[in-house]
Amino acid sequence: MPVTIPDVKKTWTNTINRVTLGATKEEGGTRTKRVTVGGATSLPFHHFEGAMPHPSVIAMEVWNVAPQDWPAVLAEHFRDVWHDPGLWAKKCVEQYGADLICLRLAGCDPVGQNRGPQEAAQAVKRLLESVGVPLIVWGTGNDDKDNEIFPAVAEAASGENCLLGTITEDNYKTLVALCTAYKHKLIAESPCDVNIAKQVNILATDMGFKPEDIVMYPTSAALGYGLEYVYSVMERARLAALRGDKMLSQPMICDIGIEVWGVKEARASEQELPEWGEQTERGPLWEATTAYVYLLTGADILVLRHPQAVASVREAIKQLMGDGLK
């Protein structure tokens, strides 16, 4: 008896918003390349159900201060350039093929070097001179400090159509106003909670900000540290979006490097934990594996650190896209 397999294809009613980052000379910026994410009409890589016109992209992380606590297997790739964010970014783009650069303003952190708005703006300008890819600028996570530095940052990058973040439910007005004034896109952060993810988007759009100019950051977690919770939240948001929820139809960004390189599975050397194998392989593998999982639940932008993880994830995206790229 032949078995008839029922057709289980889903048709969805909505499309994930398309967000384009970077402005070229014709558009009033100086970028040589633009990056578009979103536009999907089905769950990630379900090419048999719908289109995924823009494959997920990789942003590499650059700081405006030399990191103190990066383990050697990571630091060795950047130690020669991290005194200068411009050189660091150049290396990420030219040597490792980063689609975007994510400048983390770690040097402005009040518990660290506590650098001011002008220094933050200088780092942004330096990056814009050094590379042609679009820029993400990620604040310190300290509300007061971020509200102090972002006016200078947003102005320094005026016209470049950057992605600035993050806003939260409790701190959004300043950055929403700046992104409106200087025409940047916005990262809306929520603490692993789909209800708050929706709420932050509503708050921003209530100030007149376009829902099409938002990228959601639903929080990220490393493999082994709550990744499955984040996965579920992202999955639920994406399903609601494809069913028509306009306040969850934004592309999503995952901040992976910072999480993975904070956990012992990536940080511990083989001297400390010999049974776990070589750290030079284990660290990047942990980072790449975390990224693979988020790709499958709808990550549009992945922020990564290790060049080997970047290469592996790029290959995975290529393979998952398969014929979908045509």
């Binding site: 209800n195 708050i196 929706k198 509503i202 759009t205 028509g244 929820d245 306009k246």
Partner: peptide, 16 residues
């Protein structure tokens, strides 16, 4: 059928 948010009444009207 819809995802909760504190401002869900606003979201409902913005759904189209």
């Amino acid at each position: 059928k819809e995802i909760y948010s504190d401002s869900y009444l606003k979201a409902y009207r913005k759904r189209a």
